[in-house]
């Protein structure tokens, strides 16, 4: 009789102990899970915010400096003729590089995901009804072939190093995230540009069957902004063999 008593008592004591640790551990795990997440998210969002505002203030400063440089340049141009020719050359080169905002005749191409994308489609992946980076690239290519002089996509100027890349549900252009609807504007002969997209078997024909909405408008005046990001050559140097 005494032995059984011993047993029950010790098991009970252990049970109380077990319950206590289970209770504390339960709280510990619960606390950790929420505390960690919130801490991490708020930490990251604070970092992101400060980085964004720093970025903006730096961009402001760049614009100010650019203005000052332009002032100096115009002042110098009045002084001497050689400087004026050099500056003209420089502004030509800047235009070629996409560093100045330009305007002129051109077209705008608006493309948007197919309305079928949201619905259930038997046997066809929803992907087929969305605008992809590849579609934008092929339009861009056709426009360049047709002699577009300046192109921008949703305000992002396309320059020689611009990349159009799929990044999940959005498209990265010049490292800026851009989502549908996409508006591609190009400066060039409107008729030729339009024809380059509309010809039979061309880009528009390839996209239309999927229900992707493409609206091409010929315009008398298209405004295309300058390339905003900074770019610098780290590896490339003028080739010596070229030597003038």
């Amino acid at each position: 009789m005494k032995k059984i008593d011993h047993g029950i008592v010790s098991v009970t004591i252990l049970c109380i102990f077990l319950g206590t640790i289970i209770g504390i551990q339960f709280k510990t795990v619960k606390k950790q899970a929420t505390a960690y997440d919130i801490q991490r998210v708020s930490e990251l969002s604070i970092k992101l915010n400060s980085a964004t505002s720093e970025n903006e203030s730096l961009l402001e400063r760049i614009k100010e400096k650019d203005k000052k440089i332009a002032e100096y340049e115009s002042y110098m141009a009045e002084e001497s003729k050689e400087v004026k020719t050099i500056l003209d050359e420089s502004s030509n080169l800047k235009m070629l590089a996409g560093l100045t905002a330009v305007s002129g005749r051109g077209i705008s191409v608006a493309i948007n995901d197919s309305p079928k994308a949201g619905q259930q489609n038997e046997g066809i992946s929803t992907d087929a009804f969305l605008v992809h980076a590849e579609d934008i690239l092929s339009i861009l290519n056709e426009l360049n072939v047709a002699g577009a002089e300046a192109v921008c996509i949703n305000g992002q100027r396309i320059i020689s190093t611009s990349a159009v890349r799929c990044a999940g549900s959005v498209v990265n252009i010049n490292d800026v995230k851009i989502a549908a609807p996409f508006v591609i504007t190009a400066i060039g002969d409107p008729d030729i540009l339009e024809a380059s997209l509309m010809f039979p078997g061309g880009v528009v024909d390839a996209l239309k069957p999927w229900g992707i909405e493409i609206i091409i408008k010929k315009m008398e005046l298209v405004e295309i902004p300058a390339f905003e990001q900074q770019f610098e050559f780290k590896e490339a140097k003028p080739s010596k063999a070229e030597g003038l």
Binding site: C15, G19, T20, I24, Q25
Partner: peptide
Amino acid sequence: PMVGLLTGIVIGILCPFVFPASYS
């Protein structure tokens, strides 16, 4: 023992401190 277990769990949840995360 079952009553003991339940009592323990209640004590554990009510008591103010938690274990350090690294000893989880």
